[in-house]
Design a protein around this nucleic acid. Sequence first.
DNA 1: TAAATTAGTTAGGCGTGCCTAATTTGTCAA
DNA 2: TTGACAAATTAGGCACGCCTAACTAATTTA
Lengths: 249, 249
Amino acid sequence: MTQVILSESQQDYLKIVLDLINEKKVARIKEIARRKGVSMPSVTEAMHKLSNDGFVQYSVREFVELTPAGETAAHRLSSKNMFLKNFFIDVLGIEESVAEKEACEIEHHLSMTTLDRLILLYQFLSECKKNEQLTLTLFKKCIQSAEGVSEIDPECKSCFVTGNFPHRLGQNTVHTLLSKLKRGQKGQVVMLGPDTELRRRIIEKGLLPGSAFLLEEEGNADQQYCILTDGCSIELDSNAASMIEVAVE
Amino acid sequence: MTQVILSESQQDYLKIVLDLINEKKVARIKEIARRKGVSMPSVTEAMHKLSNDGFVQYSVREFVELTPAGETAAHRLSSKNMFLKNFFIDVLGIEESVAEKEACEIEHHLSMTTLDRLILLYQFLSECKKNEQLTLTLFKKCIQSAEGVSEIDPECKSCFVTGNFPHRLGQNTVHTLLSKLKRGQKGQVVMLGPDTELRRRIIEKGLLPGSAFLLEEEGNADQQYCILTDGCSIELDSNAASMIEVAVE
DNA sequence: TAAATTAGTTAGGCGTGCCTAATTTGTCAA
DNA sequence: TTGACAAATTAGGCACGCCTAACTAATTTA
């Protein structure tokens, strides 16, 4: 048999079947439908296809079982999912239910290489002795400062506007704040400041670390800053502008 | 007009149109088709739809242009893509062409929250003063050791099998190697060792940090270890088994 | 044991996103 | 000014993944 490629939906079915078998010993059409949020006929149809392709064992009106091939595929997906979820929770500090959902959407698209590197990063952040196991703890604090959960550490606050970010302009660049630029200057975003709400508003507009831009219009307390990036005009107020570290040549 | 949700494919079209306009001033059907890897009729059809939904301005046989809504959507996607690509390259050390491809597949599925946290992580790893800017450099070295590019640092090597990983078993756990367990013992994978080839073989089997398992069969130089995880039997040779750190109660 | 309930199936349909083949439009060169 | 060619379109079709409505099979339960 030639290599059959499973669609995302099919992979989801396999994962659900595996989960059900592990949890309840058997996988029923109805329960699969419920978990996947589809109608029963959709499940029947999908099971027939998966059965044809050799991933499940299924005859009409019987329980669904996984073939070895199906088990392998399901398990692979499942463990990817679990790891990603843990990464989101342990490293990125994302809330469990959100992490679960995100992991599920992304798992299909992660290559081996990237997964492997994420695992390395996870292990590194949690363990590296040379780093004195500070890293993850520090990063957690950094998130908390940023979220305003704990008092913002003054050191953390300033940390967003200093340093030597690996941006991609020429060598002879100066780092400054967007709010300090003059009309017509070009630059590249290096960092976004710690205020989460403000930062997310900026991110939402598509201005991220690495974005190249041109300052079209200086602003001030009353006037919006207007910048052109990637063929797109963006307006920012001065609070936002003074929270964006940029590199200019 | 009610909130129109763009499909992945439609988002890709918008991004391509934006890129083309930025690069070549105009977006032609033919070039869009080439970049997206689809036929011209598919593009025509898609442009009509996007035009109906108000994201592009398009009349038959004319250049494609973006409406403000289209520009916003395209730009958002584009900047997400750029950031992800940078993250993959700068942090995970993934090769540019691969990073590009991966970023493109994942960008559609990243929520604001996760994107924001990844940006924080990126900034943190690159900048945090408290961490003495060591982190990213150290991680890069860790990757290189793991890949066998440079000599494996003995300290890095041992770092994979020590420490206090945030696994999810009870409190009273002991860390050891999978190869040291007896048949019937249960545990949870904590870390995978530094040898990249071996590690990837393990990952491929779906055994990742966090996986809970039961040792079904002890192995040795001649005999495979056989472990059950997530309802799935996995065989490992003793090299692999002695590269897996586990937590047991 | 017959009626009622529930699980599962079949049949038919729909939107999306793609395709090929055939046709139309526009442009440039002989 | 008229072919020749390239670009774009129209027409018709296909696979996928989902749906509802109507039916059948199996199991309760009165």
